Simulated scan of single mutants.
Amino acid sequence: MSDHPDQHDRPQPRFPDGPSPAPAGPHHERRVRSFVPRRSRVTLAQGAALQRLWPKWGFDIDGEHVLDLDDLFDGLPVVLEIGFGMGEATAEMAAADPATGILAVDVHTPGQGNLLRLTEQRGLTNVRIGNGDAVILLREMLPPEALAGIRVYFPDPWPKKRHHKRRLIQPEFLELAASRMAPGALLHCATDWEPYAEWMLETLEASPYFENAQPGGGYAPRPDFRPRTRFEGQGLGKGHVVNDLLFHRIGDK
């Protein structure tokens, strides 16, 4: 039997039992995306974790089915984390709050492997990892009001003006995110790029779906539950200012 005509044109997985290099396929990609997959070396430990643990705790964001979060997280309230880097902060937050499920989404294969490794190493049961585009996950794979919160820590600021359309925090994204958040759920953003912090604050303040959780408005102090990451420490060492934004989903929208 001959191969499918386009079989050899498709990206081949680096880890056959791990995350797909093109989880949603071309039919979901015709829009401006807020991320670019990064290429970097996967260590032996990360690769071993991907091969061994991905079938247990990972899934591809294919946009073809709706997730049953109660089944996936044994009934825990679920917070979506969009972009987790190497996963150290995610694992720390999951260990500190085992009563909350963390649905962590990224496209960085070494980070996915590292978070799987940390999850196993710490004996965590409340972390699941999605490979792919968080917008497709929100739009196609989550039911309304399913999330207890969304975390967006240090997203790409796309500093050049011509790239501002690629920033994740946009009115359209906030409308979509709000539709998948329970009333009162917390949207928590953090960035060390001050122009992007101003953009986030202005966009969130203008949204009819969110209200600022900080008394008096403006930025919030870093909450205790968000650990300081290595990336953040490097930025602070360079004199960067980190701003946190905490906004609740308004219940009657």
Rank of each mutant, 00 (worst) to 15 (best):
P159L: 01
C189N: 11
P110H: 05
A24C: 10
M86C: 04
I169H: 09
L186W: 07
R38G: 11
A177P: 05
V78I: 09
P223F: 11
I129C: 11
D97H: 15
L147H: 03
R222F: 02
S34F: 13
F154R: 00
Y219I: 07
L115E: 09
I129E: 03
L67N: 07
V42D: 13
M1Y: 14
K253G: 14
L72R: 15
F225G: 06
D70K: 09
E81G: 11
P13H: 02
P159V: 09
E81M: 08
L174Q: 00
N126F: 02
G218M: 03
N131I: 14
G218R: 02
G149R: 04
L245H: 09
T90P: 05
T203E: 09
H163Q: 07
I82S: 11
A24R: 06
T109I: 15
F73P: 09
H248V: 04
P23D: 11
R52D: 09
Y209S: 00
A45F: 13
L147D: 04
P16R: 14
A190D: 12
R38S: 10
D3H: 15
R222T: 05
L118G: 05
A134W: 03
A89C: 13
G123Y: 11
P157M: 04
L76C: 11
G101K: 12
L53W: 08
R117E: 12
V135A: 10
Y219R: 10
R41G: 07
P21N: 11
H28I: 03
S40E: 08
T119Y: 14
F210R: 02
T100F: 09
A49F: 10
R222N: 08
H248K: 12
L138F: 01
L174G: 01
W57Y: 13
H188K: 04
A49Y: 08
K160S: 00
A49P: 08
E81W: 11
P19E: 01
G239Q: 02
I129H: 10
G217V: 07
E172K: 08
E64P: 06
A220I: 00
A104Y: 06
G130A: 11
D68V: 03
Q234V: 12
L245S: 10
R52G: 04
I150A: 01
D74Q: 14
V32L: 11
R167D: 07
P221V: 13
F231D: 07
G83W: 02
Y209A: 01
D70N: 15
N212F: 06
L80E: 01
R230G: 09
T229H: 00
R151V: 07
